[in-house]
Nucleic acid binder design. Structure first.
Length: 278
DNA sequence: CCTTAGTCCTGCATGC
DNA sequence: TGCATGCAGGACTAAG
């Protein structure tokens, strides 16, 4: 599942090769991979030229030279594959052909990914919260929030904070010593400070490792990331905590699996926890 | 404002 | 073996 570090890795591979390239032909194999009308999307994007490639939250963004933008959200299983040749791929949802026959393939097994074209006068991704690297701003938002939702839920809310998904939310809460079910407005200030500082560190380390490959994620040159070998709690239920050897627990928060160490991430007080509802 | 449940999807694991 | 069921999850929507 591509989160911020995986998307950043993808962007870093595409940025040196795509700017200056023109979309010569676009083939859509699954209409719903396009937000809005797929035919119109193809019509409006054909013959456009890529100016820059960048990341915002979990979105890969292509700035077109005429001021418009193409965004791609990879969902759960989306991949961008940049290659000179065609490969058999039963999950191919879209194919972008550039001049000199270079190809960008959008592959997406579970079909949760979405591509969207933005007009020049539209503000891009207006509902996204700040990037986690804006430490001061994130700390301020966390400190000021009156939200009673579980802190984990807030971290996953892209309007509050952009780019964090299930894996890195669990890792960041472990690093900050916060129980994931703590109400956001009840987390002690010193823990919030730790969270705002640890989160960007965790993301940077994951980027250095070219992302976390659990099953589907690959870079555009189809290599795997290696950050899965460095995860401390995510997916490690019933295994010893790397810090204190207490067994990692798995619980559900808003229908999402959450992993934490009961000793390193103690609840501030039992009655403060967001209760579990089946 | 907040929440939960349902939807979209497929592959994989499990159980009979 | 084969079929049914359940699970995973990000973003979005509807309903309370």
């Amino acid at each position: 599942m591509p989160e911020l570090p995986e998307v950043e890795t993808i962007v870093r591979e595409l940025r040196p090769v795509l700017p200056g390239k023109t979309f010569q032909k676009i083939d859509i194999y699954w209409q719903r991979s396009v937000k809005g009308d797929a035919e119109q999307f193809v019509e409006e994007l054909t013959n456009s030229t890529v100016g820059d490639v960048f990341r915002r939250g979990k979105y890969t963004c292509f700035a077109l030279t005429d001021g418009r933008h193409l965004t791609i959200h990879l969902g759960m299983s989306g991949r961008l594959i940049y290659s000179p040749d065609e490969k058999e791929n039963k999950y191919l949802r879209a194919r972008f052909t550039f001049c000199e026959d270079r190809l960008l393939h959008f592959s997406d097994m579970r079909k949760f990914g979405r591509m969207q074209l933005w007009q020049a006068n539209q503000s891009l991704l207006p509902d996204l919260g700040p990037e986690p690297f804006e430490t001061e701003r994130v700390l301020h938002l966390l400190s000021e929030t009156k939200s009673t939702r579980a802190i984990k839920t807030l971290l996953l809310d892209q309007r509050f904070l952009a780019g964090v998904g299930n894996i890195y939310a669990d890792e960041a809460l472990f690093a900050a010593g916060i129980h994931p079910r703590t109400p956001a407005n009840k987390v002690p200030k010193n823990r919030l400070r730790r969270l705002s500082l640890e989160l960007p560190q965790i993301l940077k380390k994951a980027i250095a490792n070219k992302g976390t490959t659990l099953s589907d994620y690959r870079t555009p040159e189809s290599s795997s990331g290696s950050n899965q070998f460095y995860l401390k709690v995510y997916g490690r239920e019933n295994q010893p905590c790397p810090t204190c050897s207490t067994l990692i627990k798995q619980i559900r928060i808003n229908a999402r699996s959450s992993h934490f160490c009961p000793r390193c991430q103690p609840p501030p007080a039992n009655f403060l926890l967001i209760p579990y509802k089946s």
